[in-house]
Design a protein around this nucleic acid. Structure first.
Length: 477
RNA sequence: GGUCCCAUCGUCUAGUGGUUAGGACGCCGGCCUCUCACGCCGGUAACGCGGGUUCGAAUCCCGCUGGGAUCACCA
């Protein structure tokens, strides 16, 4: 086998793809790409009760959305039964594993009792020395773990960590129902798939010595380990739904860009001097396991939002227009997708919004007036801005703009300057009423951009409607 | 409870014996301005505690405290 680096991301398909999982996937990916090694995906679905096809789909979708491409076909543990069994048979034959006839219920009972009496809730080893088969009962298979000596995990992030083997439990490697368990499968797979480095969450740290022991019993050389610290919520407990969205796809739905997600997650627990902004390419170039921090990191939605804004602000309008379009349909602002001929329009809207909107969803919500025939004038905005004094301004605007052929920003600016001079008004006095007439609210892109993008026909008809609105609703002041 | 891990601004971090402890997010002020933003300028704020080691500790050692993880026929 070659000595090339090989790493894997090994999620269990028992729910959506969690952002913590995404970060460990990212670290594995970056490490592999940086080292010119392979990054593979392995679905750990040995728990048939909890694994679902839907969850597998979610994992694949998430990886695709983020652009974390893996090498080779994903491996599914559920299809590698015989392989695991062979190794269990070998352990059995060599006396390194043994059948255990204790039932699940009995074990549970003993655990509770031990806990109650303040003893360690570990397996008492009653079948370890060999027992007669219990008729009508399928045994589970346990690993006969050594109980003396120590096992050292040489962690690439934390250094050597020593575990006393007397703490080691005889873990079950095959269920009585037949399916093998996690610790056995991970070891067999990682060994046979030639994994050189295991980069995973530090919630796995304490079962690493068990796995090393299993490697040794099986005659395999253990890989190198790097346990990355967990992501915590604002209250410093493990990040969960209580802290807000934790599904990666929920962020897609909220209008986040994959590059913002990747950048944020990479910086969470990893740093490179004073830099904050990293493209995927830069991350690959600069990533190192040594740069990963030892302490857990609190997930900070504000900073993620800032990064997302950064990427929207600086993103390619063409690409953004495509994502924006999808979101417009998603959010029901558009009943049917716009045709090819409207791509330019979409892009114009994106260009005038990208600097001020932090998510695609926000961009959609603040751009509805670009896509509706009828706009509704906001109560407060109308009352505040469309007062009697605004009437002549709108009339004047209507007259001037009707006569105006070119609706370029430059030409419009000239028209507005003229009005300003003739009426002796500051731009704000003209722009605000028009803004409300055109958008229904007091907030929008710059007035010249807005008028230019909306176009003559729409602008004139909205001015008319605003005038009607003022007539039907004479103000008191 | 046993075992293991961790500890710099509110948060993410830089810092590896000698720094006015740096940057970023957030927050607060100002400037810019047709609204909202962007941008720019400035400000706020940290080495958990106690012992050592050393001429000198955020940095090294020990203890404490605090937080986290894990102890399944889950992964």
């Amino acid at each position: 086998m070659s000595n090339k680096i090989r790493v894997r991301f090994a999620p269990s398909p028992t729910g959506y793809l969690h952002i913590g999982g995404v970060r460990t996937a990212l670290f594995n990916y970056l490490f592999a790409r940086k080292q010119g090694g392979a990054f593979v995906l392995r679905i750990e679905d040995t728990d048939t009760e909890r694994s679902t096809e839907e969850s597998i789909r979610a994992i694949l979708d998430g990886m695709e959305w983020l652009g974390l491409d893996y090498d080779e076909e994903p491996v599914r543990q559920s299809s590698r039964n015989e392989l695991y069994q062979e190794h269990i048979d070998r352990l059995l034959a060599e006396g390194k594993a043994y059948p255990c006839y204790c039932s699940k219920e009995e074990l549970e009972e003993r655990r509770k009792e031990a806990l109650k009496e303040g003893r360690d809730p570990r397996y008492d080893g009653r079948c370890r020395g060999g027992v007669d088969p219990v008729p009508g009962r399928e045994p589970a298979i346990r690993f006969k773990a050594p109980h003396t000596g120590t096992t050292v995990v040489h962690d690439l992030i934390r250094g050597p960590i020593e575990f006393d083997n007397s703490q080691m439990d005889d873990l079950i490697i095959r269920r009585s129902l037949g399916m093998q368990t996690y610790n056995l499968c991970v070891v067999v797979d990682d060994a046979l798939m030639g994994m050189t480095h295991i980069i995973r969450g530090d919630d796995h740290l304490t079962n690493t010595p068990k796995q090393i022991l299993l490697y040794e019993a099986l005659g395999f050389k253990p890989p190198r380990y790097a346990h990355v610290p967990m992501i915590l919520g604002s209250d410093k407990t493990r990040l969960s739904k209580r802290h807000g969205a934790t599904s990666i796809m929920a962020y897609k739905e909220m209008g986040y860009l994959p590059e913002a997600m990747l950048n944020y997650l990479a910086r969470l627990g990893w740093g490179c001097g004073d830099e904050e902004i990293f493209s995927l390419e830069e991350l690959i170039e600069k990533f190192s396991l040594e740069g990963i921090n030892k302490s857990p990191a609190v997930f900070n939605p504000e900073k993620l939002l800032w990064l997302n804004h950064h990427y929207i602000k600086n993103g390619d309008p063409k690409r953004l227009a495509r994502l924006f379009h999808e979101m417009l349909v998603e959010k029901g602002v558009l009943d049917v997708p716009l045709g090819e001929d409207r791509q330019g329009y979409l892009e114009e809207v994106v260009k005038c919004q990208q600097e001020k909107r932090k998510t695609l969803v926000e961009m959609v919500e603040e751009s509805t007036y670009f896509f509706r025939d009828e706009i509704e004038i906001d109560e407060k905005a109308g009352k505040k801005v469309l007062k009697a004094a605004a009437r002549p301004i709108l009339e004047k605007l209507k007259a001037k703009l009707s006569a105006q052929k070119a609706f370029t920003e430059e030409a419009l600016e000239t028209v507005f300057r003229e009005i300003m001079e003739e009426e002796e008004l500051k731009l704000g006095k003209i722009a605000q009423p028009l803004r409300v007439a055109l958008t229904g609210g007091t907030v929008s892109p710059g007035i010249f951009e807005l008028v230019s993008i909306l176009g003559k026909e729409t602008v004139l008809s909205r001015i008319d409607r605003a005038i009607d609105y003022m007539e039907s609703r004479p103000d008191q002041s």
